[in-house]
Design a binder for these strands. Structure first.
Lengths: 329, 329
DNA sequence: TTGTATGCGTTATCAT
DNA sequence: ATGATAACGCATACAA
């Protein structure tokens, strides 16, 4: 009477191959073992279709080959692309990805960091706007676009340089009067530097500019009001608009269209992120392109980094200009 | 000399609370226990900041509260939204999500199913175009949009009905001559029924139609050629186009624009999926909307279903029409 | 009710 | 180089 377990264990393999448990473990983990032993074990493994139980392995070795990734959502194309790239990067290194959407909710973010830690992940990559996220020191964490302080490495694109680049490109294409539109948290996260870069470039070039900056959850109508205020005799006070994201730029474009203004003839628009239609077609608007796959690679590199001592605490990646039809070529 | 473990275990909690291991386990798992014992244990837990080790728990109970989700990528807004919804559904039930992007590669898909099974997940939700995906019977699997046969439950939206609806809406808005454009695998997956529904409606309404159907990886130029063939004297042979996805519809719109054709005046276009600009703004085109969050909920329901006997093997969810500016209102 | 002891499938430390 | 054996942290059947 043979007892047929539904899923074979190392013990079963050992019995089948006529060797001991330790030998099987060595073969499985690629530790040198006598040729004939190795052959026997491998034969038994494929015969029984044995596969290692990662929970037992994780328990014993406390290395789980799993990284938790948290972003607000996958609805925003930028976040989706980011997670897509991180996933590819992790897969290439045989790591698995535990994904959490936080919905911008600080409580959920905290909850999920704790869940991830409890899950004994090997690392956490998080894009969080929570200013006082508490993290354990047991598990390496890398932050995207938000600098938490010296202990926690942060990777982001060159937001300041991107702001400068936006202003420069607009002026280069003939704009004489600029505007900066921003919606988002007041926190001193990396994207806030887009404004600083923009302002700095405007002042360096001696170009006048206007700004409209509102908090998260401010209704979009605030921007419509702003545009109306600066709309006189069928003409806007400015001829170049830098929007803090492509998403905002898209909404602005719809509004401008509704006002009868032509883009890029009457007014040029630049966004930020480098979002593309359906992920891989043309840009949704002229934009400052974040190097998403470089960001992803840097995050994964850093979170899996063994020798932390030399880890830079802030990695800043270069952005580029992408033409998307809303500026003059 | 007190030995300070970096991360406390149940044993530590038991010692701290002056009770036994079993008691702590019961408290942690919500099994009734004497009030004063419970208090002591809870005090110890929060003092030590104890959190259960899910790997030990998973090993012991072979229930991991983890579901694997596989889609081709997160670049496509439809997939991204789907994964977003599934994630919310899982989080609400305290389940974690292990995410895999398969890139349409059958080998990778197979690899990842095996990885997921090895990871001892409680279930797998997969959107795969691999006709002969092999799955173990040990772990419940739910397929989206592809029917694998009786053993594996499948959830999809009503693709056939959607195809009909598209034809009907075009005709309702005045079209006299329709076209259907499709790119994709020839496999008999659910989305193929979009064509069947479309054809059926056209014939029922006695409306003439043309079709252009090409394989995956056929260059987009094939559709440009098709449009040119049917372009005579500044006019297309048809005045209504149903595209198999919003993504294709978007490309067609660009081409039509390049040909100097006005949408929806000269020709109306309907896509399929219900993709929105930046995930939550207006539709990218008039479209047949898939009930993504219902699909997500159904998948999660079914994959976690305990009483499988009554599980339907094919769940079909209703679609709706969404106006996106490329049809006459 | 509470405590004790065993085992889940691995890895790693021992002797052999 | 290989085999026996003790943990890893938790759940649970069983004894108290």
């Amino acid at each position: 009477m043979i007892e047929r377990r539904s899923v074979p264990t190392m013990k079963d393999v050992a019995r089948e191959a006529g060797v001991s448990l330790g030998t099987v473990s060595k073969v499985v983990n690629g530790i040198p073992v006598g040729k004939e032993y190795k052959d026997k074990v491998e034969a038994a493994i494929s015969k029984l279709e044995y596969r290692i139980n990662s929970y037992a392995k994780g328990l014993k070795s406390s290395q789980t080959y799993t990284v938790a990734v948290m972003v607000p959502n996958l609805i925003s194309p930028f976040f989706a692309k980011l997670v897509d790239c991180i996933n590819r990067e992790l897969s290439a290194r045989k790591y698995r990805m535990l994904f959490y959407a936080t919905d911008y909710d600080p409580e959920q973010e905290q909850e999920m960091v704790m869940l991830a830690e409890q899950q004994k992940v090997d690392g956490i990559i998080v894009l969080s706007y929570n200013p006082n996220l508490k993290v354990s020191e047991d598990v390496p964490l890398v932050s995207i676009d938000r600098y938490f302080g010296g202990q926690i490495p942060c990777v982001s694109s060159d937001n300041y340089g991107g702001g400068r680049l936006a202003a420069e490109k607009l002026v280069e294409n003939g704009c004489k009067n600029l505007a900066f539109l921003r919606i988002g948290s007041r926190l001193t996260n990396e994207p806030n530097k887009r404004k600083d870069g923009f302002v700095s470039a405007c002042e360096a070039m001696d170009v006048p500019y206007t700004m409209k900056i509102v908090d998260d959850y401010t209704p979009y109508a605030a921007f419509e009001g702003f545009l109306q205020e600066h709309f006189h005799g069928g003409k806007l006070d400015f001829d170049g608009i830098f929007c803090v994201t492509d998403s905002l730029a898209h909404q602005i474009l719809v509004t401008l269209n509704g006002m009868g203004l032509k883009v890029p003839e009457d007014v040029q628009v630049i966004g930020f992120d480098g979002v593309r239609h359906f992920g891989d077609l043309e840009f949704t608007c002229s934009t400052i392109v974040q190097p998403v796959s470089d960001i992803a690679a840097a995050c994964v590199d850093m979170v899996l980094e063994k020798h932390k001592t030399m880890a830079a605490s802030l990695v800043c990646l270069p952005v580029t200009y992408g033409f998307g039809g809303t500026t003059r070529a």
